[in-house]
Simulated assay, not measured.
Amino acid sequence: MNTASDSLPANMPLLCIADISVRWRDLDAFNHVNNSTYLTYLEEARVQWLQRIPGRWASEHAVPVMVASELNYRLPIEWPGQLRVELTCARQGNSSMTIAHRIVDASGDKLYCDGHVVMVWMDPTTGKSVPLPQAVRDAASG
C-alpha cells in the first residue's frame, strides 16, 4: 500500500491545502475515480490558491495556462471519500512556475497521486509569455 507518510518537502513553499469531497459522478465503470478527474481536483486546488492571493494574479494581458502535467497514480480513489490536495512551489521562472502536488486522503495516511504541473502566464492577445505577476511571485515565495 502507498502511504503518505512523507511530509511536504521543507524546501518548497506551501501554496495551498484544499479539502475536496469525492463525488458520485467522479466514478468510472470500475467504481473508482476516473483518472481524468484527478486533473479536475488539482485544478480546483490551484483555483483556491489563486483566489487567496492578495493582489492581482491575472489581468487583461496576463493569464495562467497549464502547459505540462505529470501525474503519478499511486492508489485508486473510491467513493465516498474526503481528499486533501497539497500544492507546493517547486520552481519559479520568469514567466512560469512548477507546482508540485499530492492528493492524499483526509487523514494524510494514503497517497493517491503525486507529480507536478507547469503553469505559464501569457498574454491572450499575443499568445506570448509574460513575466509572472508580482502577487504570484510573492505568494509562491513562502
Rank of each mutant, 00 (worst) to 15 (best):
G93I: 09
H116A: 15
C113Y: 01
Q48A: 11
W49V: 00
V117I: 09
P9H: 01
M12A: 11
P9G: 06
D109Q: 15
A68S: 15
P80H: 06
H101C: 04
D123C: 10
C113Q: 04
N2P: 14
L15P: 01
E78Y: 13
L14V: 08
M97S: 11
N31Q: 14
I53R: 10
L15I: 12
V63T: 13
L83P: 04
W79P: 06
S129F: 03
G127H: 02
V63F: 00
Q82K: 14
Q82D: 13
W24K: 09
W57R: 06
W24L: 14
Y112M: 08
Y41I: 00
S96I: 05
H101Y: 08
P76I: 10
N34C: 06
L87C: 00
G108Y: 00
W57M: 07
N34M: 03
G142T: 11
V85H: 00
D123H: 03
C89L: 14
G115D: 01
E43A: 10
A100D: 01
V67H: 11
E60V: 05
D109I: 00
P64D: 09
S107P: 05
M1H: 12
T126E: 05
I103M: 02
R25A: 14
N31R: 13
G81L: 13
G142W: 15
L71M: 12
L8S: 11
L111I: 03
H32T: 04
R52N: 12
G115H: 04
P76D: 09
S5M: 06
C113K: 03
Y73S: 08
P133E: 00
I103Q: 00
P131C: 09
M122W: 02
G142E: 06
H101P: 01
I77W: 07
Y41P: 04
H116R: 15
P124K: 05
E78W: 12
R102D: 00
A58F: 12
V130E: 01
Y73Q: 05
E60G: 07
T98V: 14
N34K: 03
Q82R: 15
V117D: 13
A45D: 00
V120Y: 08
L27D: 04
A4Q: 02
P54T: 08
R84E: 10
A100S: 11
S5G: 08
Q92A: 09
R102L: 06
S96K: 09
M12S: 11
L111A: 04
G142N: 11
E60Q: 14
D138Q: 14
W24N: 12
Y73T: 04
T98S: 13
L15Y: 03
V47N: 02
S69P: 07
S96D: 03
A100L: 01
Y112P: 00
P54I: 06
L14R: 09
Q51K: 14
D6N: 14
P13D: 05
A135M: 10
E86I: 01
A62N: 08
T88F: 02
T3F: 11
L87G: 02
R46W: 03
D109F: 05
T3C: 09
V85M: 06
I17Q: 13
N34S: 10
T3K: 07
Y38P: 05
V130Q: 01
G115F: 01
V104H: 00
L71H: 11
C89D: 03
S7D: 15
Y38A: 06
R91T: 07
D26K: 07
S69E: 10
Q82E: 15
N2H: 14
G55V: 06
D6E: 15
N11C: 09
L42F: 13
V117H: 07
